[in-house]
């Protein structure tokens, strides 16, 4: 890219493991300001964990994360919570507060963090709900919403405080094509109209290709590709090729590692259940 981009989030040599399993092994990447960056990878590669590390919800084993030049994991609780007011996060399940209705859910961050009068809150909430097209559902309870609707409400809640950056955790998983289309459009328009920095964690290649400016691919704890979507689409070999084009076999084998099929059938290793 020729234009000079400002970096908002910088991850340096990040390592994180859960028990014995290493989830990230020395990841370094930077996320530009005002763009849509997608972090892609197969299921179980810890993409959600990466978002939680960026937001300071989990401490890393080693490495650093800088958001707006602040080292997230060195911040005091108070400073961290101040930083989080500039962040919005859209969880996979929506994560709406179950005992509040749609209106109150969107109003929640406003009520907690501002002392705005009730009329202003009312106007703001309606505006956010209008942006996600759910003004008509403001009296409904979270349990009455479909998955796509609760994600849209959660999105309205995420932008209630006009954050500077917003994280989407698998926004397209398990949604029908129409809802996916709605979410794609929402993410795109929100990014443009509010000047947000969006970080998108997903493995839905088609949708990501439609909206992402930058793409990072993570596999087995390492960053294996990074670049604009054109650059990644043109890659014709190796893992990135397999992932982007959804090929069943390649560097990631179709079969889970095992002894040879014939040996298993004859019971050579286990000594039981043999065919003989």
């Amino acid at each position: 890219m020729t234009e000079k981009v400002e970096t908002l989030i910088e991850i340096k040599d990040l390592t994180f493991s859960r028990g014995e399993r290493k989830i990230f092994d020395g990841i370094t990447l930077s996320i530009p300001k005002g763009k849509i960056t997608a972090i892609m990878g197969p299921s179980g590669s810890g993409k959600t964990t990466l978002l939680k590390l960026i937001a300071g919800q989990l401490p890393p084993d080693s490495g650093e994360v800088f958001v707006e030049g602040l080292n997230v994991h060195q911040l005091s609780r108070k400073k961290l919570y101040q930083l989080r007011r500039k962040m919005g996060m859209l969880f996979q399940s929506g994560a709406l507060l179950a005992d509040l209705n749609v209106f109150e859910n969107v109003a929640f961050p406003l009520r907690e963090h501002t002392k705005l009068p009730e009329e202003v809150i009312y106007a703001l909430v309606l505006m956010k709900l209008q942006a996600v097209g759910l003004r008509g559902a403001k009296e409904m309870m979270p349990s009455e919403l479909s998955g796509g609707m609760s994600r849209r409400v959660a999105l309205a809640r995420g932008i209630a405080l006009d954050p500077e950056m917003i994280f989407y955790d698998e926004p397209f998983v398990g949604q029908d094509p129409i809802t996916k289309g709605v979410l794609v459009k929402l993410i795109k328009t929100l990014n443009e109209s509010l000047g947000l920095t969006s970080v998108l964690v997903s493995h839905d290649v088609d949708e990501v290709m439609m909206i992402a400016d930058y793409i990072c691919v993570i596999s087995e704890g390492k960053l294996i590709a990074e670049g604009t979507k054109e650059a990644l689409l043109n890659e014709s070999t190796g893992y990135v090729n397999q992932f982007i084009h959804g090929l069943p076999d390649g560097p990631v084998p179709f079969h889970f590692p095992n002894v040879s099929y014939t040996d298993d059938l004859e019971g050579v290793h286990t000594g039981k259940r043999g065919l003989k």
Partner: peptide, 22 residues
Amino acid sequence: GLMRSTEQISALEMMAVDPLKF
């Protein structure tokens, strides 16, 4: 337990609302 499994607690943290206090 349900609030945690439906990520409500995480969502609170992300909204800069301390679950300890809230």
